[in-house]
Amino acid sequence: MYVAGMDIGSIFSKAIILKDGQVVASLIKRTGGEIKAISHRLMEEALAPQGLQIDDLKSVVATGYGRISVPFADKQVTEISCFGRGVANSFPEVRTVIDIGGQDSKGIKIDERGKVQDFVMNDKCAAGTGRFLEVMANALEVSLEDMGPLALQSGSPEEIGITCTVFAESQVISLVGEGRRKVDIVAGIHQAIAERIHGMLRMLRIEERIAITGGGAKNIGLVKELEKRLGTELIVPEEPQLIGAHGAALLALEMALGRKGS
């Protein structure tokens, strides 16, 4: 029996196919254009190697900010529930999930089955999200992928206050104007984002262990800064961006089994 999970994020869209509960295919693509079309294309591409079509899927759960626009989904579930479920599947010892996505960052408290106990989310301002990092990378003319490693090279990070993206951007530009070292600015940006995320997390009663997911988890600079603040090592899944889609697929499986039973 095949089921699928789709996570349509603001920057990337992800798909995972399960066969009898095991991952048989996964795919990540940039989100761009109309979501209905993308979700079709992405799912078809993921299914093709199995020689399957969308109709062969017993059940599909969609998540992510574009979840309501996936035409073939049987159900929409928020990424908060999906990330909880996805993390618990691989790491049942995890009680807190930090998810740093393109548009949002979140802190999620879960039980051993991945059920959400409490959660927090960043406010409307993008400071503390992947989008912010992207804006900063552009302002500094550094590729997004290089930001994290670059941050680790600094011995004296600049102090950057980020209460708001616009404010921080002008601050970064004036630091560049003053001829400050790029690595120090980049390191300062990472500290500021980590500070912001840590501030948000403190609204939760953080319990160990802690996992980090989403695109932000692939940024080594950010992970290190967060670990420093949390005083513990973070669990970074191998494919941190796929956790939401995986959680969605697991929920799809439950649905399919539930239906069989009834």
Binding site: Y65, I68, A73, D74, K75, Q76, V77, T78, E79, I80, S81, D104, K115, V116, Q117, D118, F119, M121
Partner: peptide, 18 residues
Amino acid sequence: TRLEAFIEMIGGNPIERT
């Protein structure tokens, strides 16, 4: 998203939208 996640969390009735 927050509202849906909250209602999912308290075990409300997650919507099945088609």
